[in-house]
Design a protein around this nucleic acid. Structure first.
Lengths: 228, 228
DNA sequence: TCAAAAGTGTTAAGTTTACACCCATGA
DNA sequence: TCATGGGTGTAAACTTAACACTTTTGA
């Protein structure tokens, strides 16, 4: 159609900020690039949008290629469109953050990609505008975790309240009061005791909890932008 | 470069959700399309990203083409990347909302584009996914207006507290208590009395206020995502 | 028996909400 | 003089923040 063809076309990429939670802190899964461009430098996992593939599905694919995981929590953050952001060529990139249960990814695939879990407090310099992408993804994660129980995607299906508190402390990078935290969780119907006990972290044993999906409509997961 | 050329390229567009405020309600500047595709239907103002132009600058340009305004408040909302979202061709679109002082746009340009201010409560059906774009832009505007004084972009430089309250009532579509509202504004250092009086809306006259930029760092305007 | 993590309530401070009348002025 | 919008304070409800000791049990 005439209307379209007079316009230029661009490479469109997705870049994923992949969060995991281990040893009381947030980690990002980063690539130590053994390929061009920017070989030897650190970067986010990314890839180009393909014909017949939506931008969102490209992010899903890229994530699967690296972790072997499907059905991962993915949330779009921002489109980065500066002309010189990638010095190799004009590329417009859409960033997504992903929350994964760090004990479930495919280690073989991660190794093949030369990817490593890096503590959020010890991030190396990243290529292009990937540092900015991380900063903005963390802002959005913090925003959204304050109003939706998305943090649970970073934990196993059953978790203790101590684990959950430690997760929120890692997300917001601040200490929380144990009693106030538990009071708040108790007031949420979406998190309930499973009856199981975790004996691995203490002699007394900690009650395990799970996310109660019946209390939280699935539709919320597909809201693009949340406001409450 | 080999790395890039094996990948497809796409048309990338921007679409603008242009908010104005008049007669105590929010309006959107919409096009009644007298051009293809979707001639005769209502749509947002949009345009294609050009070579050598960042996505953000494309939004600035598109906005200028319609309103004659430069230096408008613009905030990116989301990238829409479904394969079939534009039935004419595969187009990836990045949406931005704009806040403009409705008394300052170029009426001639708006007329040439066959554009009209439509009350937010009386929106017509929009083409493609433009309705979804409006919904999401409003969500983001509400989120952001709650933590930053961006609403002021919709008002003249000097405004009464009654006007300001009416604006927030329009944004959140709910009545606010006059005394509580004024108490909150008084606690904000960023809004101060100018000393001028508006005699047009009442016999008594209303004190005019303005946004005090010295109390609010310009840098905030360039934050991509806000979290506090 | 003791070290280590789990679990548990109360009070003060701060914030938000609800609510109604007087003021100044131009017509 | 009166109709119109501008302007003002207080008390109750609710939310958030601060704070320390007891319980359980495996080593």
């Amino acid at each position: 159609m005439d209307y379209y063809v007079s316009n230029p076309r661009f490479y469109v990429a997705v870049d994923c900020i992949i969060f995991g939670f281990r040893k009381d802190s947030l980690k990002l899964l980063l690539l130590k690039r053994n390929f061009e461009p920017a070989m030897g430098k650190w970067s986010l996992m990314g890839g180009f949008v393909q014909e017949g593939e939506s931008v969102h599905m490209a992010a899903v694919r890229v994530l699967r290629e690296l972790t072997g995981l499907d059905n991962v929590f993915l949330d779009q953050v921002h489109a980065y469109g500066e002309t010189e952001r990638d010095p190799g060529s004009r590329v417009i990139s859409v960033s997504y953050y992903a929350l994964i249960n760090i004990s479930e990814y495919d280690e073989q695939l991660v190794k093949e990609h030369n990817a490593f879990w890096v503590d959020i407090h010890e991030l190396p310099e990243l290529i292009f505008d990937h540092g900015q992408m991380v900063t903005n993804a963390l802002k959005k994660l913090r925003q959204k975790a304050a109003i939706r129980p998305i943090g649970l995607n970073l934990l196993p299906d059953e978790f203790s309240l101590t684990q959950l508190q430690s997760l929120y402390e890692a997300i917001y990078d601040e200490k929380l009061d144990k009693r106030n935290f538990r009071k708040k969780i108790a007031s949420l119907s979406a998190i309930r005791k499973t009856g199981n006990i975790d004996k691995t972290t203490s002699k007394k044993g900690a009650a395990l909890y799970c996310f109660d999906k019946t209390e939280y409509s699935e539709a919320d997961r597909f809201d693009i932008i949340d406001y409450e």
